[in-house]
Amino acid sequence: FHVDIVQAIGKVPIALDNVDLFSLTGHKIHGLPGSGLLIKKRQVLLKAHNIGGGQENNYRSGTNTLALSAAIAKALRLVTAQQKDNYRHVTTLRDRLWRYLNDNPHLYKINSFFKDNPYIVNFSLLTRKASVVVEALSNRQIMVSSVSSCHSKKEKFSAVIYAMYHDETLAQNTIRVSFCKENTLEEVDELIKGLDEIIEGLKQ
């Protein structure tokens, strides 16, 4: 079977022994947009969608862009080599935000599980609309999202959060914070300060 490992590669250990194919995209690991990989076991047979010159062992005719291939290879080497250090750093960032959210249960409901991947924290606002808070944070140059970027054009609320609680209000007012190795504790503190000031300001 096939596994999309784009949110896990370079972040958490991945067991691929029983996986037939896996794929990832370059821009999620600090590579260039427009690059990606599909890796398969030798015994897995694929049928080409495009026929032509027979490049890529007849799987994908056409010449790959060298810059994209080199960039994703370099990015993959870096994220896997730095995985443990990056994980520890991002866990520190997640813990700082988690403590703040946990200390304010009248304002936030944490939807993530503490043992989950620390690179993403999802929570619901209990007293304010997420769309308003996300826009206000954006005006402060703090970028978070209220829905999955993959479905941002068609989702009115988080289907996952709705499935968890069967509560449209919680599902409509989720905020998703994504961390990476380049984020800092100071930026987390700015996010916390922004949430405090924005939510307090909306009361007035």
Rank of each mutant, 00 (worst) to 15 (best):
K203C: 11
S148N: 14
I198T: 06
L195M: 12
S158T: 00
K193A: 13
L202P: 04
G201S: 02
G194I: 03
F179Y: 15
S178E: 13
K193F: 05
I198H: 09
L202D: 11
V147M: 03
E187S: 04
S178R: 15
H151D: 08
G194A: 05
I175L: 04
S152C: 08
G194Q: 02
S149Q: 12
E155Y: 14
Q172I: 00
E155F: 14
V177N: 04
E186C: 05
V177E: 02
N173M: 01
H151K: 12
L191V: 10
D189E: 15
K156M: 06
E197H: 08
S152Y: 14
R176Y: 02
G194P: 03
D189A: 12
E186H: 13
K153F: 10
I175P: 01
Q172E: 15
N183H: 15
L185A: 02
Y162P: 00
A171S: 06
L170Q: 04
A159S: 11
L195G: 11
C150M: 09
H166D: 10
A163P: 03
R176C: 03
Y165D: 14
K154W: 14
N173H: 01
C150Q: 12
T174K: 00
S158H: 00
L170G: 05
I192F: 06
Q172L: 01
Q172M: 06
L202G: 04
A163D: 10
H166V: 02
K154G: 12
L191G: 08
C150Y: 07
T174I: 00
I161H: 00
V147F: 04
L195E: 06
K156P: 00
K153I: 08
L202Y: 06
Y162E: 01
S148C: 11
S149F: 07
E200N: 15
C150P: 04
L191A: 11
I198N: 07
K193Q: 12
S145I: 12
L170R: 14
L170Y: 07
K154N: 14
E200T: 14
N173G: 00
S149I: 10
H151V: 08
I175D: 02
I161P: 01
C180K: 11
E186M: 11
S152K: 13
L202T: 05
E197C: 04
E168I: 06
Y165C: 02
E187T: 05
S149A: 10
N173V: 01
L185Q: 13
K181Q: 13
S178D: 08
A163H: 12
E168V: 04
S158G: 02
E187Y: 05
C180W: 08
S152W: 08
D196G: 05
L191K: 07
H151I: 06
V144Q: 06
V188Q: 07
M164P: 01
S158V: 03
V160D: 11
V177S: 07
C150V: 10
S148K: 10
C180D: 15
G201I: 03
E155K: 08
E197D: 15
